[in-house]
């Protein structure tokens, strides 16, 4: 089985600043990778670049088999990004937001309903405009939007932020299920205890570089998980 993410000396610039300064990283399918590091280490840029929202300007970058140096768009239907923003349309209801996200991602409308039920959004919140939700509720809808897309690669940037205790437990269960189902998860978090309990592997970022990003040579050389 091919690696879900394979980066070699990958560079991404924010203006002239190298936010990623030559990252080497392998992530095998079904793994939950925790990316830890101080603020400004490049965690968010790494996730955004893997999603194709930031460009890799040098090195090699393959995500889900797509060469992101050549094509940042083709793989997007297969990934879900939970970032600092919730990506919601304030004037649409929770149900409308999730239906749009699911259909845009190539999933059917039923998956939006399942995601709503899973996140506890199928009650009175279903027909409430996203703009009227609390921050925690918006975060829950954002998680549901990722779930509704049924992605092969989950890119999660501080995913526990804004969720209450029940929401965090629910979220952790969803991530474990996705990984058990073969999805790959990359997770950046400062809540190390909770995130470490989810992770099957941990790497540390500093100064735009990843320490210990490569899998053991025998595994990476044969591209076997």
């Amino acid at each position: 089985m091919a690696l879900a993410v394979r980066l070699r000396s990958a560079v991404s610039l924010l203006g002239r600043f190298p936010a990623l300064a030559g990252v080497d990283l392998d992530v095998a399918p079904g793994n939950v990778l925790l990316i830890q590091g101080p603020n400004g280490a490049g965690k968010t840029t790494l996730l955004r670049a893997c999603a194709g929202l930031a460009a890799f300007t040098d090195g090699e970058a393959e995500v889900l088999g797509y060469d992101l140096r050549r094509d940042r768009r083709s793989g997007r239907r297969r990934l879900g990004l939970l970032g600092h923003s919730t990506f919601l349309y304030d004037d649409l209801t929770v149900a409308d937001n999730l239906r749009f996200s699911a259909r845009a991602g190539g999933a059917d409308v039923a998956s939006a309903g399942e995601a709503m039920a899973r996140l506890g959004l199928d009650g009175r919140l279903r027909d409430v405009s996203a703009g009227k939700l609390s921050a925690g509720q918006r975060r829950r809808v954002a998680v549901a939007a990722v779930v509704a897309r049924r992605p092969d690669l989950w890119l999660l940037d501080e995913p526990h932020a804004g969720l209450d205790a029940a929401g965090r437990d629910l979220f952790d269960g969803i991530v474990r299920e996705a990984a058990a189902g073969g999805a790959t998860v990359m997770l950046a978090s400062h809540e190390l205890d909770r995130a470490a309990a989810l992770a099957t592997r941990t790497v540390t970022m500093a100064g735009g570089l990843v320490a210990g990003g490569l899998l053991a040579p025998a595994r990476s050389a044969s591209n076997v998980a």
């Binding site: 997007r76 349309y89 996200s101 845009a104």
Partner: peptide, 10 residues
């Protein structure tokens, strides 16, 4: 950042 979502949507 809904424009990012539009880009990410595929």
């Amino acid at each position: 950042d809904a424009r990012d979502a539009l880009r990410l949507s595929g």
